[in-house]
Nucleic acid binder design. Structure first.
Lengths: 374, 374
DNA sequence: ACACTTTGTGCGACAGGCGAACAAAGAGAG
DNA sequence: CTCTCTTTGTTCGCCTGTCGCACAAAGTGT
């Protein structure tokens, strides 16, 4: 773009208060440039990560810095009403902690553990969370907070988060694979979330990986989800426990976090299970790579804290000497955003909408004055 | 768009000669409208379908009507030089048959049985067709014909063809699955061919479907290609022949076309093989549906002439009672374009480029005169 | 002190698109 | 046949966004 056009745009941005001049920069042989800064704290966004068994809330600034964080274990699937009221409590608490008044709140984004149909983006899939049928979370929050509310699948928002703020900042195509209660993938194509026709794209959990794993609820045999969900891994640890008397894994109350910790410490049984998971995951990842051929795959979710312990057997199983260019050339990395990734992605959904349509930003008073004088 | 803007655009189009007024239409209570027609025969395009074992050439008009068709069996993989000279002969013959002089030729599109890297779109993958290494088909044809030449993977162009002229005309997302010497898929996302980072997207042939099928050249175990390629199916017919003494399949020289014919006639062995293929294909298709969630899947290639004989077991294996919305809601159909689909897709590649940038259309004399007077 | 570079802005030009007004051509009622 | 209303196509002025150019402001280096 030409310098004159940029001048005009910058003038507009200065008026909105989103951008401000931050002083003079270093000269490169001539007049010193006026540096511009995005005013991160001009507005705030709420991101909600609603999992199957927890709710987390982040209040972020416009650069996705987390200003307040609330998280609580809760059986979301079984008690929708309770979940909604808990969510409200967490949001209110976080807003107060971050000292955000309603005028500065741009909107609320929610990540949900269910596909979201683009044609009807305010309700959850009754197949994945039956008790949430007929409950309109988006409308509910809009009525309470009177700001725009957006909702999408958690893996999609994890992918968005990695692309904007995490490991996927340098590419237009990216796959994010989330290993949690179930396995799901979020796909970024041409810089945008790809949802497919009915919003179900990325359901990597239903790729067949092991015919001996029995039948899946989806009707197919040997789905990845039958081998990879956190509950399955804990179950498997329990089943194999007798063969590993020396293992330090607890016989009861085992969680995936503990499993990962013990694997890092060197426990043989824990490592066996993590490595096994990596090998199973490889089959699904191989299918995804061959179909999608993304530049980068980011792994997120509780299990991926095992890092190379999970990725090494996965990469080995993918076959480093494979002639398949898609497998060979893809970078496989673990998430850099950790537990906050999904909620920040939910907030990013709102940020992106507002950047596309700046009228969504709440207008401060001085801008209204400026508008009147023209 | 407003009526005035359309007037301006139509005036431009009339000048190019691509569109002409075709008389008055029926009145709907007022002045009769001036009907416009695309001048299909204003220009012509050449589409080349270069398979592993054949070359076909179509000369099409601007509406993808085939004006001339040439096809010949040839071992393309083993004799690149011979293939190029054969290709030239077929193109010249077809151009003469359709009475197209060079001035009316927009360009030449080529479909190749190899991934094409978007960053280097003029050469083939040495992994798929080793002998074509260092041979630049695009440059070769540009030097001979002095027109723009485009190249892409055959499955991608099959998908493009189905979306523009065939079964996929009504959707922005579409998957085209080609069952030929190997299995490949072409993906249309947001109305455009999706190639992935290195042009290898859609390699459905390397999805794992059967661990007992042995190791694939790609390094993984049990790839779909090990069960589905035309050569594999013929081999399997041969292996099972002793168990089916009543079968009318020939013991030697069996082709897939013959196999499909016999299956349609009711031969048990032939049906068994086609149905088996459908069930294996289902596993790959299920993975693709869950990842991509397209509105429609179009099946093409020689095997798909078996129609419902292939699709019925495939659909059954996908599980009609499946709760997975992507599998349930996708329409699965066979190609309506048949053998000409790929070559027409290759021509469409050029057509699309020219419609995006109309200066690519060869300029007739009267337009140049008009340009001078302004 | 002077020439030269870099940066920011004001102004006229221009393309693309839009709505309003108008002209052309027809339908239908009386 | 006349008059009114509808539909279609075009012309004109307006607005927006972008660009190139000229010019001013503010540096660097000899």
């Amino acid at each position: 773009m030409s310098r004159s056009s940029i001048s005009a745009i910058v003038a507009d941005l200065l008026e909105t208060g989103l951008v401000s001049e931050t002083g003079a920069g270093d000269s490169s042989g001539g007049r010193r440039p006026i540096m511009l800064g995005f005013d991160d704290d001009a507005h705030a966004i709420v991101g909600v990560d609603m999992g199957a068994t927890h709710i987390a809330v982040a209040v972020t600034d416009l650069r996705s810095q987390v200003k307040a964080w609330r998280s609580k274990i809760f059986d979301v699937r079984e008690d929708p009403e309770g979940a909604l009221s808990l969510m409200r409590g967490l949001i209110d608490g976080a807003l107060i902690e971050a000292s955000i008044d309603r005028e500065r709140l741009v909107g609320i984004g929610i990540a949900v553990p269910s596909p979201v149909n683009p044609e009807n983006p305010t309700v959850l899939s009754p197949l994945f969370v039956p008790k949430w049928k007929d409950l309109n979370i988006v409308e509910h929050l809009e009525n309470i907070y009177r700001v725009p509310v957006g909702m999408d699948n958690d893996a999609n928002l994890g992918a968005l988060s990695e692309q904007w703020w995490g490991a996927g900042r340098d590419g237009r195509d990216l796959a994010y694979i989330k290993v949690a209660t179930a396995v799901g993938a979020g796909l970024i194509i041409n810089g945008d979330i790809y949802r497919g026709t009915t919003g179900i794209a990325g359901e990597i959990g239903h790729i067949p990986v092991d015919p001996s794993a029995g039948e899946c609820v989806c009707g197919l045999t040997g789905c990845l989800n039958l081998r990879m969900g956190t509950e399955k891994l804990v179950q498997r640890a329990h089943d194999l426990r007798p063969e590993h008397p020396k293992s330090t894994l607890p016989r009861r109350g085992l969680t995936v976090s503990r499993l990962v910790e013990e694997a890092c410490e060197g426990d043989r049984l824990a490592r066996l299970i993590v490595e096994d998971a990596g090998r199973h995951l490889a089959i699904g990842v191989a299918a995804m790579l061959n179909l999608f051929n993304p530049a980068k795959v980011v792994f997120g979710g509780s299990l991926t804290r095992a890092g190379e312990l999970l990725l090494r057997p996965l990469k080995d199983a993918l076959g480093e000497r494979s002639p398949s260019a898609s497998v060979k050339q893809s970078q496989l990395v673990t998430s850099t955003l950790g537990i906050e990734g999904t909620a920040r992605g939910a907030a990013t959904l709102i940020l992106r909408a507002a950047l596309d349509d700046p009228t969504l930003f709440p207008t401060p008073l001085d801008v209204e004055v400026a508008a009147h004088t023209t």
